[in-house]
Amino acid sequence: MRTDRSLTWLVAIVVLAFVAALPMLYPGSYWQTLGLITFLFVSLSVSWNILGGYGGQISFGHGTFLGLGAFTTAAIALRTGIPPWLTIPVAGLIAMLYGLLWGYPTLRLRGPYFSIATIGVGEATRVLMINLDDLLRGIPVLKEVVRFRPLTGGASGLTLPMPADIRSYALAYYYGAFAFMLVALAVSWWIRRSRFGLALLAINMDPDAAETLGISTSRYKVMALMVSAFLVGIVGSLYAQYFLFIDPREMFSFQNSIAMVLMPIIGGVGTLWGPVLGAVVFKVVEDRLSTARLMVGSLSINLVQFNLLLYGLLLVLIILFEPGGVLGLIRRIGRSKLSLRISARFRGWV
């Protein structure tokens, strides 16, 4: 058990060193951007896992926080002209408040009923945000808000001004996103070993028993949603700052919400490192397949959307055979007779 843990840390340190050195190996490259996106998705996955993994409340509505974070940053930066990074805490707070707003009623529902309600919340939010500017223009007092500048830009989205030195800007956000990923991991690690985490775990395993033993299940679930929303809101903010263009149809899309559910489940839901692993697998598979082509005789098949098929297959296999996800699979292999035999032989040689 101890060696298992120290091995995890060793792997983590090697990965972190590689990640830190990547921009020096390939400065300003495609790999740097892929790295940044991976950090953001790892953060999303880890954040979702606080409510979905520890607390067992499967939310399909986390895309709302991503979008709100992004548009809060863009709308404030465009109106006031302050540097976008200053809006990060506000983006997190707005997402958190939105989490309180829809979490309070929906978290009274249990299991699949909660999940279904979150799909509704996500879709309603998306439609609302796409039409927000037009909606406000029709209301007497509120129309002043969007008189000179849009809030979401409707179908045309919002564009932030281009920074002067794009290379160092990109590099700064690469490390910034990396640092934030570590923050999200630290929060997740802290919650897992805290009193709060014990409450979430108890709620996950048996909400009625948890309630009987004095845990206010609705309060802890709403708190977990708010923490999770805060972190996801900040990811949205960082996304807007790096890519400089955001479209409500994309930011609030159902696909983002689905991605946040898939990543932790693929990696190992309810664990600290599983969601990290899941996000990396998720992004790498998506990236590799988006450029790959399958040659069948003289026929060349484009595999751009093929990743969705693969995720679906992976999800079915995981739910059927290894609910612990990729991390559970690795642990199972580690415990298996085969690996014991190999390590025994290895010891014989040394």
């Binding site: 014990l198 775990l201 108890a202 048996d206 033993l213 004095g214």
Partner: peptide, 29 residues
């Protein structure tokens, strides 16, 4: 505090942690 007619332990937790839940969150916890 009530017990449940059909026992409902937190299955994946240790016995110690099961009892700790009561200790942390119960009366005066």
């Amino acid at each position: 505090v009530s017990t449940h007619q059909i026992v409902r332990p937190f299955r994946e937790m240790s016995v110690f942690d099961n009892v700790r839940v009561g200790a942390e969150f119960g009366r005066r916890g």
